[in-house]
C-alpha cells in the first residue's frame, strides 16, 4: 500500500504546480473574498454577530473554509485521476499485475489523498493565521476533522468513479448536483438555519455540514454540545467505513476485468 502512495508521490514531485493552485491558492482567494472582503462589509452589524456567536466573521469562517477546500480537493482527486488509473493511463492495471491487490490500490489512493489534504490544510492554516483567522490551537483539531471529512467524501467518490465508464456527464453531474450544492448548503458561509426551511434537511445528510460543525466548534474552542459532536463524528466515520468497503469491492471487480 505504501508502494502505491510512493508511486503517487513520485508523480506529484513533477506536477505539483497544478495542485498547488487548486488546493492552496483557491481557498486563499475564498478567504480573502469572504473572510476579509465580505467580513468587512458585515463587521459591527448585529445580524452578523448574532450568526457567528460574537466572533469576527473571518474567525468563524476560517475552519469551515478549511473543511470545504479539503472536501473539494478530495472530490476532485477521486474523479478524473481514478478514472485515468482505470481507463487512460491504466496505472491501476499495471500495479495489480504485480504483487499489489486491488484493495491495496484503493486504500493507497485514499491514503495518498488524505496525506495531500493534510499537507495542503497545514499550509492553509498558516495562511489563515496571517490574516488573523486563527483563534487558538483548536485549529489543529479542525484540520484532523477536515481530513476525516475529506477522506469520507474521497472514499465515496472513489467508489463512484470505479463504476464510471464515460467521464463527461457523470462527473459533471456529480460536481454540479452534489459537490457544489454541498459547499453552498453546509453552513460554510452562514448558519444553516438561515436557509429556507425546505433546504435545511439537505444539510443533515451532507458530510460537509457535519465536518463544518465539528471543525468550527473545535477551532472556536466551544464544544457546547458533546453529544452532537459525537453524532457528527459517528456519521463521518460510518461514511468513511462504508466508502472504503464499497471502493475496495468495486476496485476488485473492475480490475478483474
Amino acid at each position: 500500500m505504501l508502494l502505491v502512495v510512493e508511486h503517487f508521490w513520485t508523480w506529484y514531485r513533477r506536477n505539483w504546480r497544478a495542485t498547488a493552485v487548486s488546493s492552496v491558492l483557491q481557498p486563499l482567494l475564498f478567504l480573502l473574498a469572504f473572510g476579509v472582503g465580505f467580513g468587512s462589509l458585515v463587521a459591527g452589524t448585529g445580524s452578523a454577530a448574532a450568526a457567528t456567536g460574537g466572533v469576527d466573521y473571518i474567525v468563524w469562517l476560517a475552519p469551515a473554509l478549511l473543511a470545504v477546500s479539503t472536501v473539494q480537493s478530495a472530490a476532485f482527486e477521486s474523479t478524473y485521476p481514478v478514472l485515468s488509473g482505470f481507463k487512460w493511463q491504466r496505472t491501476y492495471f499495471a500495479m495489480t499485475a504485480g504483487p499489489i491487490s486491488p484493495a491495496q490500490v484503493a486504500l493507497g489512493h485514499l491514503l495518498w489523498v488524505a496525506c495531500k489534504m493534510a499537507g495542503a490544510g497545514a499550509i492553509y492554516i498558516g495562511v489563515i493565521a496571517v490574516f488573523g483567522g486563527v483563534a487558538g490551537p483548536g485549529i489543529v483539531v479542525s484540520l484532523l476533522v477536515a481530513v476525516l471529512t475529506g477522506a469520507a467524501v474521497a472514499a465515496m467518490v472513489t467508489a463512484f468513479s470505479a463504476t464510471v465508464e464515460n467521464e463527461g456527464a457523470a462527473f459533471n453531474a456529480l460536481f454540479r448536483f452534489v459537490v457544489i450544492p454541498m459547499t453552498l448548503f453546509s453552513g460554510t458561509f452562514f448558519p444553516v438555519d438561515r436557509l429556507p426551511g425546505w433546504v435545511q434537511p439537505v444539510a443533515l445528510i451532507s458530510p460537509l455540514w457535519h465536518g463544518t460543525e465539528l471543525a468550527r466548534s473545535a477551532a472556536l474552542g466551544a464544544v457546547s454540545q458533546p453529544l452532537a459532536a459525537l453524532g457528527h463524528l459517528a456519521y463521518l466515520s460510518a461514511l468513511l467505513v462504508l466508502g472504503v468497503a464499497l471502493a475496495t469491492r468495486l476496485f476488485a471487480r473492475r480490475l478483474a476485468q
Binding site: L41, A48, I180, P181, F185, P191, P196
Partner: peptide, 15 residues
C-alpha cells in the same frame, strides 16, 4: 444554487 444560498443565507447577515 448560488442565488438561493448566498441571497438568503448571506443576505441574513447583511440586510
Amino acid at each position: 444554487f448560488y442565488l438561493v444560498a448566498m441571497g438568503q443565507g448571506l443576505g441574513s447577515l447583511v440586510g
